[in-house]
Design a protein around this nucleic acid. Structure first.
Lengths: 211, 211, 211, 211
DNA sequence: GCCTAACCGAGACGGTACGTCACGTCTTTTA
DNA sequence: TAAAAGACGTGACGTACCGTCTCGGTTAGGC
């Protein structure tokens, strides 16, 4: 599930020596999250400080993660709230639930601080970012794209619309507000407004006379 | 124009001693851009290496910028292509030109590498990011928001649409593709497709029977 | 005999559980000696490497010795060749045998490498050095000093000579050559030459005219 | 003179950049000596502590010496008292002055602590010990051996005595007492007694009847 | 022939020091 | 005074070893 423990995950070896404590993995990640929530700037998050905060030796961290960036992948994972169950009652309901989840994620709590900082840090390392993208972002996108595709087959979406583009049209604006924009405001009805506006379009219905 | 020169910008001093070489500022910024274009990971861009690449002493850099992040602000500025002149022939034309500019920016050359990396790095420093946001991003946004506002007054956009939201609906998807998504594909007609789809909406016109 | 086994040496407890393997003590000490003979620098003799070489867990070593220095005491002991039986035929014979033993000790094999290296290391720990000095060096010195004292009583040594000084006059030079001097040459007749020269003196017999 | 600054000692280069502060070299070495005099065990003399004591960055030490052992060579050098001027009035006078200098060296002050500890440490690294032996010990030995050789030509030493052996016969005992023996006593007349006894021999003059 | 305590290999664990590297400042010489 | 060069204090990096601790798995008694 995590990037940690990757080398110890081999099956077949009957687990020699003292096993790694799973509790420590949690302690380390939780320690990082607590520091971030407390407003510690990312630049001050040295491995030494992380180890000290978690009450752990540095080697214990390096035994689990290859470096700071790999650790941050698991930190971001741990910070993300559980993905929502889509109600499936209608396309609009599913989209609103998904975007509302994204909105809340950027609002407060751990995910907010983590998203705005560590996200950016991870992008600096293409290798790490790719790992995160593959294991976290892409599956989530694929799920919602599939929802859109089925809606298109039901006729709820115009047949000539590229569902991948539709996905970006819906999530791009929310991502812009909740992650990229510093201090961006996220009003409560933002998800609904994005979904409704994108689905209906910016232009007035044809045939309606310009005011 | 740049953040550089901040300390030497005092007028009144009759410029004693050897004057600062303006050429060096360019040499430094160009050196960083060349390194980035050559695929040097951001983590390996130390001040020491930057100085060596530019054939310049470290003090010469620190005389011009307070630190690495401030230097990067000017690097990002130098990498960004000139903003496009909006034709003004129609709302659609203006939007397509703007989004096409964003698309090209993320395609190749220096701006691409810079956007994907240094952007992210700057986000880690709230102070620096705020400076960049205020002096570069916000004016550009304000300009386009004003375009949208005038179109709304002309009736080209529904009266009940929040123009700030409209801005995000249009630029969010393009940002998502051109900056955030690694190796995202950017087809030539992407700008047009985003503008048209957002303006007309995802749903089929009312009254039209589902397939 | 050794420093090992110190904790298990308690009598009274009827020795429950699996007894310690005596073979392992030998394996560990022999492993260290083999490494030293193979020219491994003392600085690379980590407990981890010692354990690996002996095919033994680290705890197995720490169960027997308190630390590296205490282990080295037993290593030095194991490396030292058996002390010679003094013939007792004459003072000169006894001294030559003793010094010849010291000479051979510094020549080759395990004792040489150990003397030149581990000896020095032990000196860095006063506690350990004192233990070694008390249990190994001092008895040997006392024995030879007693030989000298008896020879003095027999008139073989001048009555005004301090026998403790005499001991140093005889062994000091050999120690200097066989332990302290790197690559010092140790000719076969060295012991005889030292003994004879010290006993007779450097100066020509009085009354003999300077050449 | 010292091992430090070895790389910067190239002539021809016109000394670009800020020159290394000679004062810091002294500060570092003096710091180590002070710690040793204060009884700090050698094992606690980490580079980090040395740097902290001298008020110096670690890099400043590593810029001058390759590692701890090379630093210790210069520390030992600095601790050694100035070599005595031999009076030249007679062989006996020269020898007594030299051995008395060795005795005092082992008595107190910095040289004592340094000799007993760092000496031993240096021996653990053959490379370092060889450097020390070549640049410090050997010249001193050569000087005294030359004195002995000339005395032999004057007839003050028996013609059949090997002067190199004579050197060891004289210095070996003093070294044994002043450096190797822990808590060895060094009476004031030790130098004289060693010189006189070695020169005259342990045995009573021939022809004298055993008492 | 079990039972059980201690031993054993392996290796995780909290520490500490290593030697390197980068930061931002400073101190030289040269222009 | 600017500039190149590079020394400087600071502090993080990732590695290695220390001595301790926990695992599963042996290996001897004592019953």
């Amino acid at each position: 599930m995590t990037l940690a423990d990757s080398t110890a995950g081999q099956r077949g070896t009957p687990a020699r020596g003292r096993p790694r404590s799973e509790a420590l993995e949690h302690a380390i990640i939780e320690g990082v999250l607590t520091l971030l929530e407390d407003g510690v700037p990312l630049a001050e998050l040295s491995m030494e400080r992380i180890a000290r905060t978690a009450g752990v030796g540095k080697a214990t961290i390096y035994r689990r993660w290859r470096g700071k960036e790999e650790l941050f992948v698991d930190v971001v994972r741990a910070a993300e709230p559980a993905e929502p169950l889509l109600p499936g009652t209608s396309l609009r309901d599913d989209l609103v639930v998904m975007l509302e989840w994204m909105r809340r994620r950027g609002l407060a709590g751990r995910s907010s601080a983590v998203l705005r900082n560590v996200h950016a840090q991870m992008k600096s390392s293409p290798r790490i970012w790719a790992a995160y993208e593959t294991s976290v972002v892409r599956p989530r996108r694929n799920a919602l794209v599939e929802v859109l595709r089925q809606a298109q087959q039901r006729g709820e979406i115009r047949a000539d619309v590229d569902v991948r583009l539709a996905y970006d049209l819906l999530t791009g604006p929310m991502l812009l507000r909740s992650v990229l924009r510093p201090d961006g405001d996220l009003p409560e009805d933002l998800a609904e407004r994005i979904v409704d506006t994108v689905m209906e379009g910016l232009c007035p219905p044809a045939g309606e006379p310009p005011r």
